[in-house]
Write a protein that binds this DNA or RNA. Sequence first.
DNA 1: ATGCATGAGGC
DNA 2: CCTCATGCATA
Length: 463
Amino acid sequence: MTDRSQTPEVQSRPYDFSRSGACSSQVLGQEGNVSFQLPHGVLPDPSLFYSKAAYGGITPGSAQTFLPFPPDYRGSDLQAGDFGQPKHWYPFPAPEYTGQIPGVTAATQPTNMSPPIAETREQIRLPDIKTEEDTGEGYSTDMKAQQYPTLAPSTGMTHGVFYPPAWNPSFWPGITHIAPTGSNNQNPSASSASSPSMSPSPPSNGIQGNSFFSVNSNQVPAEPQAQNPASNARSSGSSSGGCSDSEENWSSLQKSFRLGTIYNLFDCNFFLAFAQNLIFENCWSIMFLYIALQLSFKNMCKLKPLLQRWLDEAETSDNPQDMYKIERVFVETRKRKRRTSLEGAVRSALEAYFIKCPKPNTQEITQISDDLGLERDVVRVWFCNRRQKGKRLALPLDEECEGQYYEQSHSPLNMAPSPIQSQAYPSSGYTGAPPPTLYMPQLHRPDVLKQALHPGLVGHLTG
DNA sequence: ATGCATGAGGC
DNA sequence: CCTCATGCATA
């Protein structure tokens, strides 16, 4: 699941925006370096989201390259509470919290703001970021100071209006009424001349409930402007075709609210699936996106039922204070990845692999994971734990046997026992059945490994 | 109790 | 990427 080498800890170091991959959101400007901080365990005043005075801006940050779902992902397959069984895990990177302004330069505006699409497994897994700590405390503990990128006024927020490769309403059934238009309006040239249908009306101060954005569930961006430079120009208020009210509002929105945060979010492809249409929905949606900034994809998955409930409640409420309901979401959030329960057959297969190769390399782990249909990290962790278990079991015997190590394998492909290297486990401490889960692996012998591995793996390894 | 997940520290 | 210690969900 997680690759520690790529998972800076939230608690120990700031999020390194610079490590993010190619990022379309580097058009973000530099202004507005006002940090946006959250006290531990305290949700921000909702007004901060909507009051320019209170919300001085968002610091720039680079975007990240993410693919939330595998190419064959089907939202309907992912049900609440169904995150445990072996399935590939596509982490969504939660922002780690930075105490400094990311060194992101204002780049030229790309003409195509399409989100980067991870095409390989490795790409998908690259942004493996945790928002978790293992203290047993709630998420609120993790809500440290966080800075947000700034969206330069010259860059239209429409940059963020991406059209997702796939919309899976079933993943968020409660927001299915916000049907994406991108799926049925993929042709920028076919876009209407009208401005985005949303007509934001930034409040002069503080909360105005859901009135910040015009609440109209059926209103969605009319075109994939992110891929249409012309519409970008228009939406930035520099259109030569005049400036309609909505355009003015649009421009005002851009200038008044540094939605670089959201913009940045859009580089997290996970949200492409729904955020583009949610974003102008209402303040709840904004809050929702804010939450997303705090969470990893996997946590989002875990949180889905809770967030869904929160959204449902929020939709029916006119009280901005209900935003604090999100607090409960954090409180109720479990922090750990749901434990993977390996089936007996899979476990046996892993054992067989382990017997022959207790320390598979990266390539072998990948192959094993493919063969068994497990996450690579699940396999990796399994081997780590298995080795740990072996040593743990060997330790008491070790004391008795004074280093008499003998190889002992219970693999059907086993070869005759033989004295082995120092990494072996003692066998003289026990002699009979049942066979202990204590193996004396022959380490790193290609010929032995090949015997145990799946033919495909053998070919892979020998090829 | 077992075993998967996580984090620290190291190479 | 590893080991090691430990957390913690689950059978």
